[in-house]
Every structure is written in C-alpha cells, then in structure tokens.
Amino acid sequence: MSDAIHLISAWFALLGALVIFVAMIGVVRFPDVFCRAHALGKGMTLGISLMLLSLWIDQGTQAAGLKILAAIFFQFLTLPVASHLLALLARQLDFPRFGPREIDDHRAAKGAGRGS
C-alpha cells in the first residue's frame, strides 16, 4: 500500500518536473515577451500544482492536512497575476512584439461588418 503511494507520488513529481521543463523550453524558444508570459503563466501553475499534489499524496492528509490544497489554490491565484503584470509592463514600455502589428479591435470589426 505504502509502496503504491510512493510510486504514485513519484510519478506526479516527475510529471510536474517535466511540465516545468517543457515550459522553460518554451520560455527560451518563444519569440517575444508576451508568448513567454504564456509559457510562464500556464506551465508554472500546472507544474508547481502537480509537484505539490505529489507532496500531498506522499504525506497524506494526516500529516499535511489541507495546507497543500491551500498552497495549490494560491498558486492558481497569484501566478496568472504575475504573467498578466509581465504582459502589461511589456505593453506599456512598448517592447518589440512578434506577429501582426495592428490590434484586432472588436468594435472596429463590428463597424466594418455593418458598413459592408
């Protein structure tokens, strides 16, 4: 029983490490700040959550209680804010951006649709 739990927890930790690794490959490979913020925001959230989950499975609710669940919850609360702030700062400082320059505005699109 405890062997099985150790095995499951090890697999979760490995999966989390892999997820973070792939996210970091993304950070290196992606062309601009905004795309990197994507990789950071999503990859790190999932990776850290998986590793914390592995810790939870390993420790059990007896020892760890719900602390780890709270930790996962706060990861989900804070990491997207970090990635949003990165993107906001990059936008305000007008960093170079990959892809089409113009912004696709829903109001302009609607107006054009009505006009034609």
């Binding site: 062309p31 795309c35 951006r97 892809g99 505005d105 829903h106």
Partner: peptide
C-alpha cells in the same frame, strides 16, 4: 517559431 501566430485582440 516562425509559424507561430500571436496577436493582440480586444474583448468586450
């Protein structure tokens, strides 16, 4: 990398 198509859009 050159096949990525990132862009900014607005949402109401």
């Amino acid at each position: 990398v050159d096949q990525l198509n990132p862009r900014l859009i607005t949402y109401d």
